[in-house]
């Protein structure tokens, strides 16, 4: 549907290579992205990064957008992809929980402890449904504080569940 700042005519002109229209469109989209990421993340440096990345997605995908009136959905997906990439990426542990180089054996990776004998499914089976939800949400990139909000509990309780999950798995890992 035609709309104020993002009418399909402007999108079509931008798609046809009209530089002024493209710049205007991206400028307007950048305001939407910035407002959105600011509301979701807050940190200005991250907001700037995500805004740029989302704009890049739009910029590179715009020529292939078949229906100019679907710009809103197109931009929404660009924003959601960036947001969830960010969530997932921020979880990449900067500091490993296990630091092999600090141990006398100096093993290079957890694989060398277990080889092919590692039974992940058995470990998974030790988790309570709640602990599993917590760990899965964590792998989706949510912070423990956010997980606590999602599950309507406290951050301390969530972390305690994580520790309990580990304690239950220890016998499997040391078999």
């Amino acid at each position: 549907m035609a709309s104020g700042n993002f009418d399909p005519g402007l999108v079509q002109r931008a798609q046809k290579g009209d530089e002024y229209s493209r710049n205007l469109l991206l400028r307007r989209l950048s305001k939407v992205f910035e407002r959105y990421f600011k509301a979701k993340i807050g940190n200005q440096a991250v907001v700037d990064d995500l805004t740029q990345c989302a704009l890049l997605r739009v910029h590179s995908g715009l020529p292939a957008l078949k229906q100019p009136d679907k710009l809103k959905a197109f931009a929404m997906k660009a924003a959601l992809f960036e947001l969830h990439d960010y969530y997932r990426g921020r979880h990449s542990p900067k500091e490993k929980t296990y630091e092999p180089q600090m141990l006398p054996e100096r093993r290079d990776s957890p694989d060398e402890w277990f080889g092919s004998k590692f039974d992940a499914e058995r470990a998974l089976g030790t988790l309570t449904p709640r602990a599993r939800r917590i760990l899965e949400l964590r792998e989706h990139g949510y912070k423990y504080k956010e997980i606590a909000e999602i599950l309507d509990t406290t951050e301390t309780a969530v972390k305690m569940q994580v520790k309990r999950a580990f304690e239950k798995m220890r016998s499997i890992f040391t078999d």
Partner: peptide, 28 residues
């Protein structure tokens, strides 16, 4: 034993992470 358990924990977490679809697939 604790060191071995932590190594196992780390590998288990990686296993869970690998099971999850990419953010793009998940959003779609």
């Amino acid at each position: 034993d604790l060191a071995r358990s932590l190594a196992g924990w780390q590998r288990f977490r990686a296993y869970m992470r690998d099971r999850i679809p990419s953010p793009r697939d998940f959003v779609l």
